[in-house]
Design a protein around this nucleic acid. Structure first.
Lengths: 110, 110
DNA sequence: AGTTCGAGTAAGTCATGACTAACGGTAAGT
DNA sequence: ACTTACCGTTAGTCATGACTTACTCGAACT
């Protein structure tokens, strides 16, 4: 239970399409709330709430620049997700290998 | 539109905790619907519906074994997610680098 | 052939959460 | 010091979707 917990939160956070859009926009360029809301079909408060969820998930960090808050991606959160995925990818490959081994030369329906 | 579309679907599918549990269980061992539902606090039809979503997202594959359906992870879907994550991770690192650079040099307009 | 078990589908209910509107607080500019 | 602008918060509404119950289909076993 190192950062796999963060990975779980990150997956849940990225399940929402609007949050994915915010995430991708932030990947391109760090921005403030107004900037983000301007390029999205939702209001500022909505972006603010999504940002809070993303921050709780460890995917973004907040940097106060005067009255503005600049949000940017947190590489650690993305790395945790990547690690979680890596672990399960290994399981997937293993299971697929076992399946392929069980069906060595069979598997051509119709 | 390479496989990033599949990655989007995969992210959306994995946003649900129950689907994540099914996904992790499948990563450990391919199973039938009854097997899955037996180890989860939800009914069989619920597992069936989640399996359908996971299959549509390209994360699991179905293999008919007589009356039983054996579900296993699809390495391609997991790989697509991993690729998507990789791309945005690069963006995150780049943005973070720019941020660190901006704090050591100080001099960015607008 | 009949029975039994297992899986998928459909309809319906209910909870979660995404969004908007209104308010308060804080920092810069005049 | 006042005004302006931006950000965050709260309360409330409404849509999305997760879950269950009941039904039908298909395959194996007696």
């Amino acid at each position: 239970m190192t950062y796999s917990n963060s990975a779980i939160l990150a997956l849940g956070a990225l399940g929402d399409p609007t949050r994915r859009a915010i995430f991708e926009s932030l990947a391109r360029k760090p921005s403030a709330v107004g900037q983000l809301a301007d390029g999205l079909p939702v209001s500022r408060p909505a972006v603010s709430q999504h940002l809070r969820v993303l921050k709780a998930a460890g995917l973004v960090t907040e940097a106060a620049d005067g009255a503005r808050r600049i949000y940017r991606l947190d590489p650690r959160g993305v790395g945790a997700m990547r690690d979680w995925l890596d672990t399960h990818w290994a399981g997937a490959l293993d299971a697929f290998q076992a399946f392929a081994d069980s069906h060595t030369e069979e598997g051509n329906p119709s």
